[in-house]
Design a protein around this nucleic acid. Structure first.
Lengths: 182, 182
DNA sequence: CCTATAATAAACATAGTGTTGATTTCTTGA
DNA sequence: TCAAGAAATCAACACTATGTTTATTATAGG
């Protein structure tokens, strides 16, 4: 897709900043188009040129984020996509670079669609280890959600460990110990 | 608390049914007080005698659910509260008995506050196994989220396994293998 | 049966919504 | 650099849902 008009980029960017800022104070469900536009100093009519409502806007932002996340990860299409320690590290780097956004979106001010998209995203990029029995599926869900839990905990405890350290923990836990045991 | 007036119970119950029913069609964020009351055949003014808005209503329902869940689980106050296989089974029984509600609330039509409350609930009722180092905290989050993942997967695949079977899987995974390994 | 209280009905001001048309400002590429 | 096209603004609009109030009716429970 061609690069879009600078005015469009600017409008969306300032609206995005305003939304993120408001979401630090209150849940997205209580944010109105009016106050968002006031905050961003954007004509309300302009908002409707881009989005249908606040939730639609958040969803578009989420989708952009997942697209950039996907490009960044650069996993081979089709074939085996099991995450290696390197890929785990890249994920933690990405999360750290977007920590402000991720933290808000995973908090109770966010919107459940983000978590659902994230689980789906991870689910598609982890590889099942142990066939496709229903038990294996349960274990697999356990691992995917568990990984999300570690990311969330890392974010909420100030990201004290480096991405490499976190990747090591993940590889150790998911890639080795669980694999041996299950 | 004393048992409340039958009319109150009836009003709330019919509103709750209407909300759940609407949430099967659309996300809670798009449900208005008006359509909810129309569906429930309740005067809109009556709604405001009980709740401030749809989100407030959902939150009250969530809280009632967690209170009943907590009573049902009947864990000893204060002391060690590590979940045993028996308790795991009880959780799956409870989820099954409330599967309609749980499924909607965990879907993208639900509200993120429910997941946050649920994680918090589980977090408080699992016992940490390995001290309180930051690494242990990460593993602990992994387990709590992982458990939620298994519950969600079980719900979304038609609850084919019995609660006892699921409890066995959990105990095996969380109580034994991970404990030995970490 | 009586009293208290919950639910109803109707009306109201208000705020936010979503859209429109005319106008101004800005961007881009020739 | 300038012209054409597109985006943003502004003001106005009808509309819908909100939240509250008042008077009235219905019902629960002692």
């Amino acid at each position: 897709m061609a690069k879009q008009d600078r005015r469009i980029r600017k409008t969306r960017s300032v609206l995005k900043a305003a939304l993120l800022s408001l979401m630090k104070e209150k849940s997205v469900k209580h944010i109105t188009v009016k106050e968002l536009c006031d905050k961003a100093d954007i004509n309300r009519g302009t908002f409707y040129l881009h989005y249908t409502d606040v939730f639609d806007m958040l969803e578009q932002i989420e989708n952009e984020m997942f697209n950039s996340f996907n490009e960044y990860l650069d996993l081979p299409q089709g074939g085996e996509k099991m995450l290696t320690e390197d890929k785990f590290r890249e994920i933690f780097v990405y999360v750290k670079d977007n920590s402000e956004f991720c933290q808000v979106m995973l908090s109770d001010r966010g919107e459940i669609g983000f978590i659902r998209k994230l689980i789906k995203f991870l689910h598609e990029r982890f590889t099942t280890f142990y066939g496709n029995t229903s038990v294996a599926e349960h274990y697999f869900s356990f691992i995917v959600y568990g990984f999300l839990g570690m990311v969330e905990n890392w974010l909420n405890t100030g990201m004290k460990e480096s991405p490499s350290e976190m990747a090591f923990l993940c590889e150790n836990l998911i890639g080795n110990k669980l694999k041996e045991q299950l």
